[in-house]
Amino acid sequence: MLLEVNDLAVAFGGVQALDLEYFSLEDKELRVVIGPNGAGKSTFMDILCGKTQPDRGTVRFREHSITGLTEVQIAELGIGRKFQQPSVFPGLTVFDNMVLAARMKKDVFSSLFFKMTGEFKDKVHAMAERVGLENVLQQPAGALSHGQKQWLEIAIVVLQDPQLLLIDEPAAGMSDRETEKTGELLLGLAEQHGVIVIEHDMHFVKQIANRLVSVLVNGKLLMEGSFEEVRNDQRVIDCYLGRANAQLEKV
């Protein structure tokens, strides 16, 4: 078991943002989390990556309890987070963005005396090719398009070589072609890493949901199942997609 969550709860100003009884993820599993706005999806990821501290509950990652750890300690343990709003280093080049992210010793002195090796460069170039950024390596990251920033952030997270990737709405603001490419990328990543993806776009969910989809509603887990099961579940249709059910019928 890569990740195991028990009785996790957090409230913001009296609103129960998350109240999750149980959640678990196998090694190298890709899980899609869906749910209406305010269902607690991003809050869930915030807790997993140390941005938010839960009110109660336990999160075990590779047999380590990670509640109460700082974001740096959690990142060191091997959880990488891609945010909903792309969070890259806009003032640095795409290349430097990736160099900074890559797994290595990250204390002050190692950084001060870091020497670039050819092998390391190849690693960055290989990653750039994987996310389709090989032609913009010397551009400042701030000048990239929204979709490219999303990919850069995914590259940043993957280069940290985490066992668990938390990917928050990777396809937001992408064209259909880009979305499909992102899906392929995520499926490829899931061969080596555990991945949790939050997504709204049902076409995209259908493309990447190779095992289970978890549905969160009002901070609680409504159900877990394959994409087909979730899609046909009346409760999901009712509370998540509304009565009109427009989006599901299209798929």
Binding site: K51, P90, L100
Partner: peptide, 25 residues
């Protein structure tokens, strides 16, 4: 010019990301 300097700029531009990238800001 060192990687340390790049991290300083990264802190200026996007401090939370530096933390999530496992640097002790």
């Amino acid at each position: 010019g060192s990687k340390f300097g790049k991290i300083l700029q990264a802190i200026r531009d996007s401090e939370p990301r530096v933390g999530y990238t496992a640097y002790r800001v």
